[in-house]
Structures are given as structure tokens and as C-alpha cells.
């Protein structure tokens, strides 16, 4: 091979290993060519803030995917957390309160309650998967359906029945909708929550025994067991962490929208799984990084936002999104096939 050819092959190899970032750049270039005014601070802030709660959900699911599991109940858990927190966060003077006599709580109390609730369901998922050996797809499919039932029972209750839960207290809507003013712009708090959770998850994955075990279990569960890893315990903790993340995400979804129904969060798990896959998390377990997950979510959000910004028909948007998922996985499979 000539030097030129070797150089070329090095470049292609690099492009291959970083295909997701290359793709992200191509995508932005494509959208900017079609509509130059896409490049604006407002659009950037909108995309980042819209990605925030999705990143938090995706990080939860990514951990599970790395253990070679999956979680279809994520979206419904987000809905449960949204409904629970919204019901406890209604403003004192709002006429249609679910709990008319409930004083206005400091906004972090309902957030913690919601996180505890979904954290418990996460533990339940983990127990079903690791102790009863139900395949994660089935375990969490069942959980998805059951949690929706629970959310609906909680939601459709006297005194007002199946009404969207609105009239949230101002301290809470501020927490989810406002931001830090910088010059003419306002950086939404949401972005900071996503950053905080990303850092926490990065530390767990990279600097703790739990993180090492997580990759080991996903890579080769038998080997992990032989080397003394308590597989069940670690899996339960990973599902619990995911539950806690869904819980937080659900409360900020309620705050961001200003109300919640039993349909909040429906299908979010599919968006999150797709984003993880595009971000290089392997569905066969053992592989995935926090920056990858964040990039995956951002790619999806840029597509969502960018195509809507361009005014592309929603039906074509579906086709593009579907194609991207398939191509991303096709690349992923090739990468692993090469390693074997």
C-alpha cells in the first residue's frame, strides 16, 4: 500500500469509529444549508432544553441496556411520576385540587416522593429480571402495562375524576420552565439538571465498582459471576437508579408542560432506546458511554427540532427517524463484527 492509501484508510477508520459525531455534523450542515437562520442562540437553547429530560431518561435506560437488559416501562414511569408530583404540587389557590386540603409543599418534597415511587418500581423490575429470570423485555413490558393501570387509578379519582392535573404552584413551574438570564437570553434550569445527572451517572459508570460490574455483567454475565460479582444485586441497583431518573424526569415533564395526565410520558422509552442505540450503546450489552448517550439524544432532538423548523411534513420526519435508527444499528453491528 502506498503512503497515500494508508493515510486514507486511517482517515476512514477514524471516521468509522466516530461515525456518530460525523453524522451529527453532517446533519447540522444539511439543515443549515436548507435554512441558514437555523443557526441561532434561541434554537440552540430550545434544542438543549428539549433534550434535557430526554437525556435523563436515556441515561437510566442506557445503564440497563449495558447490562444487556431493556426497559419498556420507562415512559409509563415518567407518567406516574408526573401525575404523582403534579397532584402534590398544585397551587394553594387553584380551584380543582386533587387534595383540596393539602398545603402548598416545598417543591422538592413531591419530587422526592415521585422519585421514591418510581425507584421502588425500578427495584421491582430488577428483582423480576434478576431473581425470577424473566427476560427484561417481558418483565418491563408487563410493568409498562401495570404502571399505566396504577397511574390511571391514581389519576381518575374524586373529587374531579379524570381531569388533567393543572394549576401547578409557581415555585415549581419556575423550577422547570425558567432559567438563568444571560444577556438577552435565558439558559433554562433544565439544561443544568441534565448536566448534573450526566456527571453523576458518568461517575457511577466510570469510577465505582457498580459501574465496573455493570459493564462486566453486560459483557459476559458468566464471567462476572465467576469472578465474584453479585449479579442480582447489581442489576437491581441499576434498575433502581433508572427508576429514580425516570421519577425526576417525570416531575420536570409535569412542570415543563404545566400539567399532567395519565398519558404523559407515553412511548418515551422508545425514543430513549433509539437515542441510546444511535449513541453507540450496544443492545447486546457491555458497551456504552455517557457522552455517546448524550450525543444520541442530541441527534434525535436536532432532527426533531430541525425538521420541524424547516417545516418538513411530520410523516417524512417519521421516515427519516426510522432510517437513522436502522443505519445506526447497522454501523454498530459492523463495528462489533470487526472486533470479533
Amino acid at each position: 500500500m502506498s503512503t497515500q492509501a494508508m493515510k486514507n484508510s486511517k482517515i476512514t477508520k477514524w471516521l468509522f469509529d466516530h461515525v456518530i459525531y460525523v453524522f451529527l455534523i453532517l446533519l447540522v450542515i444539511g439543515i443549515v444549508i436548507a435554512s441558514p437562520d437555523f443557526l441561532s442562540v434561541t434554537n440552540l437553547i430550545n434544542i438543549l432544553s428539549q433534550s434535557s429530560s430526554r437525556i435523563i431518561i436515556a441515561l437510566g435506560i442506557a445503564g440497563i441496556l449495558i447490562t444487556a437488559g431493556t426497559d419498556l416501562s420507562a415512559g409509563r414511569m415518567v407518567g406516574l411520576a408526573a401525575v404523582v408530583s403534579a397532584s402534590l404540587l398544585q397551587a394553594g389557590d387553584y380551584a380543582y385540587k386533587m387534595y383540596p386540603n393539602l398545603p402548598e409543599l416545598p417543591f422538592f418534597v413531591p419530587i422526592i416522593i415521585a422519585m421514591v415511587v418510581t425507584g421502588l418500581f425500578g427495584i421491582l423490575n430488577g428483582v423480576i429480571v434478576s431473581k425470577f429470570h424473566v427476560p427484561p423485555f417481558i418483565a418491563t413490558l408487563g410493568m409498562m402495562i401495570s404502571v399505566y393501570g396504577i397511574t390511571s387509578i391514581y389519576f381518575d379519582r374524586p373529587p374531579y375524576g379524570a381531569q388533567p392535573i393543572g394549576g401547578l404552584s409557581e415555585s415549581f413551574t419556575k423550577f422547570a420552565q425558567r432559567g438563568i438570564p444571560i444577556g438577552d437570553y435565558e439558559i433554562p434550569f433544565l439544561i443544568f439538571y441534565a448536566i448534573i445527572f450526566s456527571v453523576i451517572i458518568w461517575v457511577i459508570w466510570n469510577k465505582t465498582q457498580l459501574g465496573k460490574n455493570m459493564y462486566a455483567i453486560g459483557g459476559n454475565p458468566e464471567a462476572a459471576k465467576v469472578s465474584g460479582v453479585n449479579v442480582a444485586k447489581n442489576i437491581i441497583i441499576i434498575y433502581m437508579i433508572a427508576g429514580l431518573l425516570y421519577g425526576f424526569s417525570g416531575t420536570i415533564e409535569a412542570g415543563r408542560v404545566g400539567s399532567a395526565t395519565n398519558n404523559t410520558g407515553n412511548m418515551y422509552e422508545l425514543d430513549a432506546i433509539a437515542a441510546c442505540v444511535v449513541g453507540g450503546v450496544s443492545l447486546s450489552g457491555g458497551i456504552g458511554t455517557v457522552p455517546g448517550v448524550i450525543t444520541g439524544v442530541l441527534i434525535f432532538q436536532i432532527i426533531n427540532y430541525g425538521l420541524a423548523f424547516l417545516g418538513v411534513s411530520p410523516y417524512i420526519q417519521f421516515i427519516v427517524k426510522g432510517a437513522i435508527i436502522i443505519v445506526a444499528v447497522a454501523f454498530d453491528m459492523r463495528k462489533h463484527a470487526k472486533k470479533k
Binding site: F23, G30, V312, I324, A330, F331
Partner: peptide, 29 residues
């Protein structure tokens, strides 16, 4: 094999551009 990969990514990139190109005719945008 690597060329095939490039073709794949080009396909997606061009489909995005195509979708972008369609934008003016859809949704009355």
C-alpha cells in the same frame, strides 16, 4: 467494506437534505 460504510452515511445525509428540500412543498410552510 469501508466504502460501503461511506455509502451508507452518504445515503442518510442525502435523505436528510432531500427531506429538507421537500420542506417548502409540505405543510405549506
Amino acid at each position: 467494506k469501508k466504502k460501503k460504510g461511506f455509502i451508507l452515511s452518504l445515503t442518510v445525509a442525502s435523505s436528510i437534505l432531500l427531506a429538507a428540500g421537500c420542506s417548502s412543498s409540505t405543510g405549506g410552510s
